[in-house]
Design a protein around this nucleic acid. Structure first.
Lengths: 215, 215
DNA sequence: CTCTGAAATGAGTGATTACTCACTCCGATT
DNA sequence: AATCGGAGTGAGTAATCACTCATTTCAGAG
């Protein structure tokens, strides 16, 4: 079983999928990620999947339904657990400092995040144009995850490790920097020389201490 | 003539454009920004511009040339001056602190950036898929602007106002946060309540001092 | 006014699009 | 063996796509 199929298992294993269905999903992810949703034709996806074009429409009523069926599980089954799981550890005081928590979270999940990147890329590419996705993203990420993130932040604030800024702003700024690193690293400038460990360290340092020199 | 009108003129008025040409550009920006490049049809753009479809292809050989002719000037004539202009002030010691410089830059240009946002949105949407744009973006922004940004950063480092992190990383992190704010504010969650002044203040505070509490 | 060349037109092109449907295939059930 | 239902097929559909081109419109020069 290839690495990619493993990733798909985590995402789509719940329902029993036939071989052809899996191949369609793999081909769709690859095509959408490379060319964008609108520029990808169902005939090309079918060809890449080694499947008749009609087979796609047996399982997905429309092309958009294929897109949603790929991106939606990412939001409900991947992002939420990704964040929430380690948050419980934080709430259990397994991490003394925010740095440790951030480092553990990013380091632990980095390989997984890299592997999910094609789908993540599709997600952020299409959110501005697909109201269905935007709504789902908003409900899950903003209202659901931000609530939990806020609690963690408040916890660290009470421990005196975080400044008194509103938790929503802290969450926005922190997530921005993690995503900003990933997008710079793997989407915009993947061909530059990157010392990943070091740059993650710097990103965490930046989140915690900024770039201003303390006096 | 205001600074902004000058900018827009520099963007699209350099060559004498007919009324219809201007209408095509405006309609194209609006359509590309709303639906994405691939999902926008030339017939729709023509209709929105009040122009025959053939008129588009009289001035732009292909649809892609229309895209490039919109985005390319933004990179060569807008982004560079936007950044560079105030940098000269910094180099002239007009701003004593990094905070003042960041605040002045963001505040001064915010309205302009908001108005340019449709084009900026198109730019970042299409960079992953258009090698031509990516190459141009890389050459201009990374090699050209980053070089200048580095000098400014080094200057502030020598004044003891910035930590000893490599200038490239500082630049990446700073730009990430400014763009992250704009994308959150105007692309992902424009419908949320935002106190812009306050959130810009927080973003600057974050860039300078992070979220860790000093002891 | 006429002449001229660029600007603009819109019907028309073949290719491609998302999607349909009558059909075959095949393993499980009775 | 007969039946059945879902999986898969691929030729076919109307619509739309980017793009072309012969023709018309129009503004300025003589």
């Amino acid at each position: 079983m290839t690495e990619e199929e493993l990733m798909l298992q985590q995402l789509f294993d719940e329902d029993k999928l036939t071989d052809k269905q899996k191949k369609i999903i793999v081909a769709a992810i690859e095509t959408f990620s490379e060319k964008g949703y609108a520029a990808s034709s169902t005939s090309e996806i079918a060809k890449k999947a080694g499947v008749a074009e009609g087979t796609i429409f047996r399982h997905y009523k429309t092309k958009k339904e294929l897109l949603v069926s790929i991106v939606a599980p990412l939001m409900t089954k991947f992002i939420a657990p990704l964040v929430v799981k380690d948050f419980n550890k934080v709430l259990d005081r397994e991490f003394e400092t925010v740095e440790d928590f951030l480092k553990a979270t990013i380091e632990n999940r980095r390989d997984l995040l890299i592997r999910m990147l094609p789908v993540v890329k599709i997600m952020f590419q299409e959110i501005p144009f697909q109201p269905e996705l935007r709504e789902q993203f908003f409900e899950l990420v903003v209202e659901n995850i931000f609530d939990r993130v806020e609690k963690v932040i408040v916890g660290y604030q009470e421990k005196g490790q975080l400044i008194d800024m509103p938790p929503k702003s802290i969450a926005r700024l922190t997530i921005t920097n993690i995503l900003g690193f990933l997008i710079s690293r793997y989407v915009l400038f993947p061909h530059l020389d990157w010392d990943d460990e070091l740059e993650i360290e710097r990103t965490i340092q930046f989140i915690m201490h900024g770039v201003g020199k303390k006096n």
